[in-house]
Amino acid sequence: MIKWVKQLDHILRGDATQLSALREGRIEISIGGLTVVIAMLGMIYGFCMGSYALLRSGGSLYMQLIASGIKIPLLFFLTLLVTFPSLYVFNALVGSRLKLISALRLLVCCYGVIIAVWASLGPIVVFFSLSTDSYSFMVLLNVITGSVAGVLGLSFLLRTMNRLVISQNLIDQRELLETQIEPTQSENESKITEMKKLPEDIKTTLQPLEDPTSKRAKQVFKIWTFVFALIGAQMSWVLRPFIGNPNLPFEWFRERQGNFFQAVFNTIINLFSM
């Protein structure tokens, strides 16, 4: 367990996703272990969210607390389930060399960043749950914390994706060189060792190597990031209630109606009309 938390720490510090760490074209993390940590942190944030219902209604709504604790990890898992197949197919269509498992590792890392930021904002949410009565305010506060976490996580994703593409290109180039060196080995050997060292100004040396395929793969990822954010937001609406409106009875899921953006808009109007 501690090992897995350390892995998350590595990702947050950026050690796990530096160019030198991506030597094999993939991020060296354990997917299973990190998933456990993500689920735990998700539960912690879920409890923070559910604390509002618990504190408002005199401690009778334990169920809301439990429901939120389960639903936050579920939110992450279902969003991935909806968006991953199309990401993979679109990547294959543009001919990206990013492998299925590498893409999954990358996304798990991104999830790690999102959930770490979100959970770190949990204590603030609890503090406001204790001190405010306004339900609309709590909803908006959670939307804001979620957006902050999402934006940070997704920008991490795009940055790391860039590095992965660079390292993949580097591996391809190295393989190409290795196949070419047979006749004049001594001459090229120094070149290869140089390549293997991964020079500091790697970006400038690799600029001409950027082929249209990896460019398109990056575009796919950018579009996907947008779709992912949309689906994540709407998924949180489908899985509601997380906070528990004090005027409504507890339910595991509410009826299907409206959408996330409409609801946020209504909540803002609600907050200012009071």
């Binding site: 389930l81 909806v82 968006t83 197949p85 199309s86 993979y88 197919v89 679109f90 689906i231 709407q234 998924m235 489908v238």
Partner: peptide, 8 residues
């Protein structure tokens, strides 16, 4: 691959 979107 788009089927999950439809279900959602």
């Amino acid at each position: 691959s788009l089927a999950p979107f439809t279900a959602f």
